[in-house]
Nucleic acid binder design. Structure first.
Lengths: 333, 333
DNA sequence: TTGTAGGCGTTATCAG
DNA sequence: CTGATAACGCCTACAA
């Protein structure tokens, strides 16, 4: 019994050459209807599946794309990656998952691996890659393969971006708070990434634009986590700054902050209003439920692979797509 | 300028044959130290990387494994998949991610794709695969590739399992509740999976063993989600059953239940104690924070790939590994 | 210890 | 429209 059926078997059964089989396999037009039919019958009869590897060898690439993220454990990345993979599968591509952990070194190793595997595109999720990928991308060994960056931009050839309008997201937060009568608004930055930086400066701009007070005790730093939220609230209270609302860089940090604030005796939203970011499952579990910014992970994911697809098809396309976030108003404001 | 360096280039520069280069590439012993050195120099000089595709063609498989999950969006699966991918990368393998969505049809398509890609192993996360993979696994086209099932077992050749001791998890819950003085304990099943079924029957057994009341109003059904939790609490209250504690099949469902119970005027844990399952980020955001069962996603993930690795190395190994969960006691009990 | 040469399963370039 | 046949880059008998 034969291990694996190949194109020769099909050719033999259909009484044609392998070239012809290959033609119908790839939907070439120059095959007569009868021949095509014969071949298709043979394929069905033998339950033949072409080997992606052999095809890859001659084509110099497989129908595979790499998805890089620092850590798929973060709900935001998970949702984006999931949407991407689904869409990729839908258009016939495989997705190789890479949890880089955010180190440049790891990044390089993963990219190397992906290139060796013959991926025909690479998608990176997260603005961390702004710092971590910059130089690596310049290396010629990667120049032939298109990169799609979700959440950041890098000025390099063959590089495309899908970003979310963070400025707008923050603007929605500040304006919503202002409407609710808040003037003393704090911002908690919880990630040292490009997008963390952008949100922070967007906060500054909007506060200034709306004539709201902004000084060196309006913006606080911490690390993204429940504990980070608790810690920063401690800092805020210790600083003696005046505030009636806080915008956090992420829901999980907001959840920690909410927890700490309640323990400290504050009523939410009566005493202080809270806004999270990313509309994660955690935001709905809080009491009160968090007002947050939905950053459209599904859309980001889908657009990223659509963009990659048009690039792979050598069609004209823009280098940059921008998605608009939405404010989800719940109980915490 | 040459597109891509291959083994011939290295051979030429090192002044040896391609066979020799191949030998040092694969760490064969029969190469003299000098020759080996020469080759390594050439490799470094040219910055040569062997093509995984070409290698795959002759070896009939690539250093790649498929990871199947219904939906990586669920924190539990995400954490397991992440741990797996990390470990796989660590031992030199690529991970192809597949979000099957749980349909048999999709499953088949994914498996087909993976086989064509020449994966040398497939790991499935979740007990859904018990139902959804059963027959497919019997097909001869998949018999040559080893399957590792996380969270379920299927009696088929070349199939290995890593499971969590759900019986023990539930036992911990019931005993903990009993210690706290609860006797009227409810169980909410929120998934029609093999493991959902096992938890339910484990609940039954433990209630019986401890002489706790169990009848047709002790177990309720819903769907895994925040809304599902709200809905089932409505059912429970409407049923008029007597209860002082509820165990939920998942944290997110528990969170919804908690929400509904509080709205209905119950104090947690004074009036009713709540236990979740899976120790997800959401469990910590609840107020009060959820007591829950940690099912060791990282360990499950790591063991799964370790098991696969030993299988691939043709070493002797067990067909089944069992991990013991732990109760995480917080404020809700 | 090293080299030669055939083969892995496709696609693509020629002729016919 | 169809068929030979040469790549693609690597591994591995088999010879030397």
């Amino acid at each position: 019994m034969k291990m694996k059926i190949n194109i020769y078997d099909v050719a033999r059964i259909a009484n044609v050459s392998t070239a012809t089989v290959s033609r119908v396999l790839n939907n070439k037009s120059n095959v007569s209807p009868e021949t095509r039919h014969k071949v298709q019958e043979a394929i069905k009869k033998l339950n033949y599946r072409p080997s992606a590897i052999a095809r890859g060898l001659v084509l110099k690439h497989t129908k595979t794309v790499g998805i890089l993220a620092t850590d798929i454990t973060s709900p935001n990345y998970a949702r984006t990656a999931c949407a991407m993979e689904r869409e990729l599968f839908h258009i016939g591509y495989n997705a190789i998952l890479c949890n880089t952990g955010g180190s440049i070194e790891n990044n390089k190793a993963y990219l190397q691996m992906l290139v060796n595997q013959g991926v025909c595109g690479i998608i990176c999720i997260g603005s961390v890659f702004k710092n971590t990928l910059q130089e690596t991308l310049m290396l010629s060994e990667f120049s032939h393969i298109p990169f799609v960056l979700s959440h950041c931009q890098i000025p390099a050839d063959n590089t495309y971006s899908v970003v979310i309008n963070e400025k707008h997201g923050i603007r929605l937060c500040v304006e919503h708070l202002l409407e609710k009568g808040h003037r003393d608004i704090l911002y908690v930055k919880d990630a040292d990434t490009y997008s963390g930086e952008r949100k922070k400066s967007a906060f500054r701009e909007n506060m200034a634009r709306l004539d709201l007070p902004i000084n060196d005790k309006t913006i606080f730093n911490t690390y993204r986590s429940f504990e980070g939220g608790i810690a920063v609230v401690k800092d805020i209270l210790a600083s003696g700054t005046k505030f009636s609302a806080i915008i956090f860089g992420d829901d999980i940090t907001a959840a920690g902050g909410l927890f700490a604030l309640k323990k400290a005796g504050y009523k939410i939203p009566e005493d202080v209003a809270i806004i999270g970011y990313n509309n994660s499952p955690a935001s709905i579990c809080c009491d009160p439920q968090l007002t947050t910014v939905d950053n459209k992970t599904d859309i980001m994911g889908n657009l990223s692979v659509k963009l990659l697809q048009t690039v792979l098809e050598k069609k004209e396309t823009t280098r940059l797509l921008t998605v608009t976030p939405e404010l989800v108003i719940r109980e915490s404001t």
